[in-house]
Amino acid sequence: MRGFWHDAVEFFPILMSGVALTIVVTIGSLLLSTVLGLIWAMMRVSGIKVLSMLSASLINVIRGIPIIVLLFYLYFVMPDLGVTLSALQAAILGLGIAYSAYQAENFRAGIEAIDKGQIEAAQSIGMGWWVTMRRVVLPQAVRIVLPPYGNVMIMMLKDSSQASTITVAELALQGKLIASSTFKNTNVFTMVALMYLTMSIPLILLVRHFEKRAGKK
């Protein structure tokens, strides 16, 4: 145990630099997946056949490809096509795209859960599609969507570790580098696990809060 605390103090600063990158990757890909997911979901419920079919097939393609392969593709293949991305850019882009499919399905479920009478009431006072979405549907859908959205945040935090496979020096990779140079596997990976857990706990509490609020109404 003494050894652990000694190592913990020694490795903490290096692992914290990994934590910083983990947070950057998580927040970046969360934002991207939210925006993309909203776009896919809106296309899906637009009532325009071409758009909804395009969105449905896009979602299926994205869902059908493992995140790690998507990352490899963006980082190793894109340069051959003339597009060079930094590891961090590729990580955010890859995770953002991968998760946009789940976000889209989540958003769509939220939108479709809104009572049809709400949409008719909006139409009956002359609202067009977009105003109906903005003023009536989306504000109500948010309540429904937030708890699963929180779960996606937790999953993204953990899946950001996959960025290590394309050399982003986030928490998992920093841990691996220290472990392989010091052979202190137990101490290092215990620390890494505890640090992920520490970041997850506030999110888990947030989800619980969302669930309570959604259940109240």
Binding site: G117, E120, A121, Q140
Partner: peptide
Amino acid sequence: VSMVFQRFNLFPHRTVLENVVEGPLFVK
């Protein structure tokens, strides 16, 4: 031509007054 529904279809996320002024403010 306005419509009044059997199941009211008020917007639950807005106050009563906001429900009433929604159309005049955001449509008209």
